[in-house]
């Protein structure tokens, strides 16, 4: 009697191998190295392998770290809220009021910004927001201004919106367009007015998509370096700016690793909590 042995599926493994190798080489490997590095020491501008908690102690006991941490958290939350609120009416219009044709064109134009590098777009905004820039030129023509917009939190926020808004509108539009229109009609039929229906029926139905869009906004702006640096003037610093500063000044790579790990942990916690909430089934 012969027993059939299951051959390892070489075909499937061969296809997956590149991805596994890539992820191992360029994601898991560096991540583990970074965790290890956060316990290294720096002496005479050179890193030495060690297992010391001094970097962690030093960073987490300093006010400047926690100030930057909560400042970054606050900026990212604000950007998430503003983006979600600004995007929603536009997405609502595209999903419910616009014709199929208009919706297609709008999605197309929302994708166009991704054709150019984010950095290039932010440089363009520098020109627009500068003291002698386009907006202030217009304002002074009206006898107003100039207003300081560049190198302020306002500037950072503009950058975050440039980064997040197109994506947020696209994600929100898709989730709203997927809503069963009969449920909206059923709400009207049961005496629920138009605006009230938006909050009592439309938002709960599109909940998952709306939260996913918000999570993307948070992740993108929490980790962003470009906007706070070029539009926000890096003062006060965000965590991404702090990583650059720390690693440059005195080769403190281990301390920069501590900041990076704190950022990754924060993003993981926020993303998991939000996605869990998005897909939470009500009741038992």
């Amino acid at each position: 009697m012969t027993t059939k042995t299951t051959k390892p599926d070489t075909y499937a493994i061969a296809w997956r191998l590149p991805l596994i190798v890539w992820q191992g080489l360029f994601f898991v490997g560096p991540l583990l190295f970074m965790v290890a590095m956060s316990f290294f020491l720096v002496k005479n501008y050179r890193m030495e392998v060690a297992l010391q908690f001094s970097n962690w102690q030093r960073m987490l006991s300093k006010d400047f770290f926690w100030d930057a941490y909560f400042f970054t958290l606050w900026l990212a939350l604000l950007a998430t809220i503003i983006t979600s609120l600004v995007a929603f009416p536009a997405s609502y219009f595209l999903a419910f009021k616009a014709s199929e044709r208009l919706r297609r064109w709008a999605i197309f134009f929302l994708i166009i910004p991704f054709f150019t590098s984010y950095l290039v777009r932010i440089f363009a905004w520098q020109v627009i927001l500068a003291q002698s820039g386009v907006i202030n030129a217009g304002l002074s023509y009206l006898g107003l201004g100039p207003w300081q917009m560049l190198n302020t939190q306002f500037g950072t926020m503009v950058g975050y919106l440039v980064l997040c808004l197109p994506l947020a509108v696209i994600l929100q539009t898709f989730s709203l367009a997927n809503i069963d229109k009969r449920l909206v009609e059923a709400a009207h039929n049961l005496g629920c007015g138009r605006l009230r229906t938006v909050f009592t029926v439309v938002v709960p139905l599109a909940k998952t998509g709306l939260i996913v869009a918000a999570v993307f906004c948070f992740i993108l702006s929490f980790g962003d370096f470009v906007s706070p640096y070029y539009l926000g003037g890096s003062k006060p610093p965000t965590l991404s700016i702090m990583i650059v500063d720390t690693s440059k000044s005195g080769q403190q790579w281990p301390r920069a690793a501590v900041v990076a790990i704190m950022m990754i942990v924060t993003l993981l916690v926020v993303a998991f909590t939000a996605i869990g909430f998005a897909y939470r089934k009500r009741g038992k």
Binding site: D180, L183, A186, A187, H188, N189
Partner: peptide
């Protein structure tokens, strides 16, 4: 529609 008192039972039920 929301000012009319003409509730409907839908073919798809349309329960929330």
């Amino acid at each position: 529609p929301h000012e009319r008192d003409t509730p409907m039972v839908w073919q798809s039920l349309a329960l929330f």
